[in-house]
């Protein structure tokens, strides 16, 4: 007997993701993977999965799903406004960041993420997904990964592995970091920008525009003056790189970035601040703070410590 949900509404950008696909960037294949790694881990921990199990990632508006099989234990991680609708159409507001069971004929309506961008739906036992090059992560642009490399589509089914017994109640108090300062290190072409622009980049605020997706985040603010060249010899790209094309407006490259590119990079977001950055919604004004490698590395230690504390808090 197969266990599945029916997709009654796919949502804006709902894809299956895990940690991503590595070792293939020299062939043009970007790692992809979940945007908010710590939230991804928490989502799995809440339903008793291994933390790297594939989950359903959604942005802004998520899917409307109906359970067609007997039962499922799920969790919705993030700041998410969602409802559980029973067989008679009775609507109950859902609570995120805790596990709960749903039963045949019930619907999960993920209405929106609140003051954030990404949320995760995890299921105890995991979704039934095909791995492509050791990862289920979906890269829509190149049609790679589970669900034939596509976003969720209306009328499709989502299959999952049935668990043997339900987990005990698990929950976590969870808050996103509301601070809008993003720490960065100098980019490879930092010296391409005028002294004034080098200063302005850290002094002024940059607004996240609507032209933001899993590939990149376009910002708007003080124009950055390139005094050398707005084209470089194309070189490999790393997640979190901040490139500045000829128009002087920065673009932060995110998890589905192109693998190589020819725009100069003024800075790189440190790993510890990446999850926080991707959850900032369009319209948010962010500012950048320059740090060196040792600060970035100790910030990452703190990030891991906080993540492990959260994971342990769920386990207890």
């Amino acid at each position: 007997m197969s266990n599945y949900f029916k997709i009654l509404r796919p949502g804006i950008n709902s894809t299956f993701q895990d940690l991503g696909r590595f070792g293939l960037q020299h062939l043009g294949i970007v790692p992809s993977g979940c945007m908010d790694r710590s939230l991804f881990y928490l989502a799995n921990q809440l339903v008793g999965n291994e933390v790297f199990e594939g989950v359903l990632e959604f942005a802004y508006q998520g899917p409307l799903l109906e359970l067609e099989s007997e039962s499922a234990e799920i969790a919705i991680a993030g700041k998410v406004n969602f409802n559980v609708i029973d067989k008679n159409g009775k609507i109950k507001q859902g609570v995120c960041n805790q596990n709960f069971c749903i039963y045949k004929g019930e619907k999960i309506d993920i209405i929106s993420t609140v003051k954030s961008v990404y949320g995760y739906l995890s299921i105890s036992g995991g979704f039934k997904l095909d791995k492509v090059k050791e990862s289920i992560s979906t890269l829509v642009r190149a049609k790679i990964g589970s669900n034939d490399g596509e976003k969720l589509k209306l009328g499709e089914k989502i299959f999952y592995n049935q668990i043997k017994s339900a987990n005990s109640k698990k929950k976590i108090e969870f808050n996103f970091d509301e601070n809008n300062t993003i720490r960065v290190m100098e980019g490879l072409q930092f010296s391409y920008f005028s002294k004034e622009s080098q200063k302005n980049f850290f002094l002024k605020e940059y607004e996240i525009t609507k032209l933001t997706d899993r590939m990149g985040m376009r910002l708007e603010g003080e124009k950055l003056q390139n005094v050398i060249s707005s084209n470089i010899k194309s070189e490999g790209i790393t997640k979190g790189s901040i490139q500045v094309p000829g128009d002087g407006q920065p673009i932060i490259l995110l998890s589905d970035h192109p693998t190589i590119g020819g725009y100069p990079k003024i800075a790189n977001v440190i790993t510890a601040d990446y999850d926080k950055l991707v959850q900032k919604a369009p319209g948010t004004k962010i500012n950048f703070k320059l740090v060196d490698i040792s600060i970035a590395e100790s910030a990452f230690e703190e990030y891991l410590k906080r993540l492990n504390n959260n994971l342990n808090a769920i386990r207890l």
């Binding site: 590595f22 070792g23 790692p31 010899k233 194309s234 070189e235 490999g236 790209i237 790393t238 190589i260």
Partner: peptide, 14 residues
Amino acid sequence: ILNCTPSYNKLIIN
């Protein structure tokens, strides 16, 4: 080592 990306004149290692 997660990824190595060669280009014309650089190797980026992640």
